[in-house]
């Protein structure tokens, strides 16, 4: 039941942000599926396993990256249209909020702590997002070189 609620709300939230940014209507289903999957995996990793939160964010962003790469080529959409609405769920809003909250409460140690955590999470999301395009580009390059060698032989 818990997981079902997560799938539902993760998808709805991604579609909701796609409405705000006026994404094309034909992309709504794709965005919903990508958002639901990435959010659910992120949630399971964060709340049910004792992994570092950075790993959970990395895996969530990685799933967004790989699905966006696949769907963008399948449906001829720009990758950005799929990535932007799905990524909003993973944004470390809680940490950013606590950075400001502790600053207001004059708890500067806590504020710097949370600020660094926000920065780290954002960096790991970026790394996760770029894993798939990087490896895909490398594999394509290897294929191209091999083909060229075959042709010359």
């Amino acid at each position: 039941m818990d997981i079902f609620l997560n799938v539902l709300l993760g998808g709805l939230s991604a579609v909701g942000f796609s409405l705000i940014t006026n994404a094309p209507r034909r992309a709504a289903g794709i965005i919903g599926i990508t958002g639901a999957l990435s959010w659910t995996v992120f949630y399971i990793l964060k709340n049910y396993s004792h992994m570092n939160i950075l790993i959970a964010n990395y895996v969530g962003a990685f799933i967004i990256g790989i699905l966006a790469y696949y769907f963008a080529r399948m449906y001829h959409l720009p990758e950005n249209i799929i990535v932007i609405p799905c990524l909003v769920n993973l944004v470390p809003g809680g940490n950013a909020y606590r950075t400001i909250l502790y600053m207001v409460q004059s708890n500067y140690n806590g504020s710097i702590n949370q600020g660094l955590q926000t920065f780290l999470i954002a960096s790991f999301i970026a790394i996760g997002l770029f894993t798939t395009p990087y490896f895909a580009a490398s594999i394509n390059r290897i294929k191209m070189i091999r083909e060229k060698r075959n042709r010359t032989n």
């Binding site: 709300l9 993760g10 939230s13 909701g16 705000i20």
Partner: peptide, 9 residues
């Protein structure tokens, strides 16, 4: 309404 769903996650 989309914004409302975004804030629920």
């Amino acid at each position: 309404i989309g914004a409302g769903f975004v804030s629920m996650a």
